[in-house]
């Protein structure tokens, strides 16, 4: 497998890797580094990749595990990632929408979810993978995935309804 073959395989899902990394690691820079690192890891094991049926699912699993590790080491060194610590480079996200407050709210609500639910919401509602793929990526049983997803969706909805009723805090 040479470089152009490899890129042909990897490029279609590099944004997905990046978005998942960002969902978990919060900061854009961290996510960029993580993506770079992961793609490079894949490149190093390119001989093996040819044997995998679903490189994308494999890459997403790797991303998830890598980010978990990063978060763990962050916790160990007493550094927690808080969103307000980072300046967002991307403003396009805000610009595009007039409901930017409520949309940002969703972003923050997802951030408060447990990591596992974050990953599943990301994979299902944003990347729109089917359940079978998600099960493989997160190494969980289908029922467990559904339960986690349902919980995440309900939490977000409840919080949004609360904010809606009491006014934006």
């Amino acid at each position: 497998m040479n470089q152009s073959d490899f890129l042909k395989v990897v490029l279609p899902f590099k944004d997905k890797v990046f978005r998942l990394a960002k969902r978990l690691l919060v900061s854009t820079e961290e996510a960029e580094d993580a993506t770079q690192e992961l793609i490079f890891k894949l490149w190093r094991s390119k001989e093996k990749i040819a044997d995998y049926k679903n490189v994308e699912a494999f890459a997403m699993t790797m991303t998830k595990n890598y980010c978990y590790d990063r978060l763990k080491s962050k916790q160990a060194s007493n550094l927690t990632l808080i969103h307000s610590n980072y300046q967002e480079k991307e403003t396009s996200l805000d610009k595009k929408l007039e409901y930017r407050d409520s949309v940002n709210q969703v972003h923050q609500l997802i951030e408060k979810l447990p990591e596992q639910q974050k990953v599943i919401i990301q994979l299902r509602d944003i990347e729109q993978y089917d359940f079978e793929e998600i099960c493989k990526m997160v190494e969980m049983k289908p029922t467990a995935v559904r339960v986690a997803l349902s919980r995440a969706r309900k939490t977000i909805r409840e919080e949004l309804t609360k904010k809606h009723n009491y006014g934006v805090s």
Binding site: R19, T35, L93, K96, S102, Q105, V106, I126, T161
Partner: peptide, 19 residues
């Protein structure tokens, strides 16, 4: 409330790795 949820999901998918 679902409006903001689905709008967010749609926007979040537009973010790309630019490096």
């Amino acid at each position: 409330e679902y409006e903001s949820m689905f709008n967010y999901f749609a926007i979040a998918k537009d973010e790309t790795f630019t490096k």
